[in-house]
């Protein structure tokens, strides 16, 4: 069951406002289990607007890992949307769920769009969830929440990012962005709590917490890793792109976080790909396979 609407950001979101005619209130579920030496998608409930591909086996050095693309059939997030995704990864299973492309968040008059993801990773399981950046259009309000329950020996890599775009190029800001990542142990004890909110005007203002940059992303690695990320080399490569990154150990030694800033959404996507590759390599011991998008 998806705990996110009750446990996290969506509890503040409230019901869909009356008159929000096209809003969707849906909950999708993916359940991976290990069987026959492979990870299989044993349970799926994918209502509109979610859409998934079949699982692929793309990494010869991680043959038991199932990779699937999660797509939106509707062209993005709209006013009043309440989209919830529940991903369960069973004991020893390995899965990579990735978006097909960036997600546009359209203007949300009167009622923010909410996307909540609840992840349960059982003993010795491994989940990679990589979202291409969310693109916030003028007057878009987005609440994005990710709740992770991490069992002993479980491992997770998460990547997401945010940027902004005014199709009419008038420099109009988005409305407001709330993000939340909460990692708990199976007993419910909070290990990591990364929550923040910002208005579009603050995002682009002179006192922006992004400094001179206009796109931001995070890659988080949880659980045991095989080796450390070569931080100096990664910083140098990202500096060369015009991005800035910083890497830190997480509270309680439960993993690492890499924060990334970029001048544009396009450079963020390039930078995040390199950061993800470095974290993937630290967690698996080898470079990630190319993903066609």
């Amino acid at each position: 069951m998806n705990a996110a609407p009750q446990a996290a950001g969506l509890r503040h979101a409230g019901p869909i406002a009356p008159g929000t005619a096209c809003a969707r209130d849906v909950q999708a579920q993916l359940g991976f289990v290990k069987g026959g030496g492979h990870t299989v998608l044993a349970r799926q409930h994918i209502p509109y607007p979610f859409h998934i591909t079949r699982p692929f086996r793309l990494d010869p050095r991680l043959p038991e890992c199932a990779t699937l693309y999660l797509q939106s059939s509707s062209g993005g997030l709209y006013t009043g949307d309440r989209l919830a995704l529940d991903i369960e990864v069973g004991v020893g299973a390995q899965a990579h769920v990735t978006s097909q492309a960036a997600t546009v968040v359209h203007r949300t008059p009167g009622n923010e769009a909410c996307l909540s993801t609840a992840i349960g990773v059982r003993d010795e399981a491994f989940l990679i969830l990589t979202n291409d950046p969310f693109i916030l259009f003028p007057k878009a309000h987005l609440r994005a929440s990710t709740q992770v329950t991490l069992a002993s020996g479980g491992r997770v890599i998460l990547a997401d990012g945010f940027t902004t775009h005014d199709p009419e190029q008038h420099g109009r800001p988005f409305g407001r962005l709330h993000t939340e990542l909460c990692v708990r142990d199976p007993g419910g004890r909070i290990l990591v709590w990364d929550r923040g909110g910002i208005s579009g005007a603050q995002f682009a203002g002179s006192a922006s917490p992004l400094g001179p940059y206009r796109a931001m992303g995070n890659v988080v690695g949880l659980g045991a890793r095989r080796c450390d990320v070569d931080t100096s080399a990664l910083m140098q490569r990202l500096d060369g792109l015009g991005c800035r990154i910083g890497l830190s150990g997480l509270p309680g030694g439960c993993g690492i976080v890499v924060r990334c800033l970029a001048p544009t959404g396009g450079l963020l996507a390039q930078g995040m790909a390199q950061v993800f590759a470095a974290v993937f390599e630290a967690w698996t011991g080898h470079a990630p396979p190319p993903l066609r998008k």
């Binding site: 929550r195 940059y213 910083g246 890497l247 830190s248 924060r259």
Partner: peptide, 14 residues
């Protein structure tokens, strides 16, 4: 508890 200061975070990390 909430904060959103990526530039400051990156500065202290580096």
């Amino acid at each position: 508890f909430e904060s959103l200061t990526p530039m400051l975070d990156i500065a202290t990390m580096r």
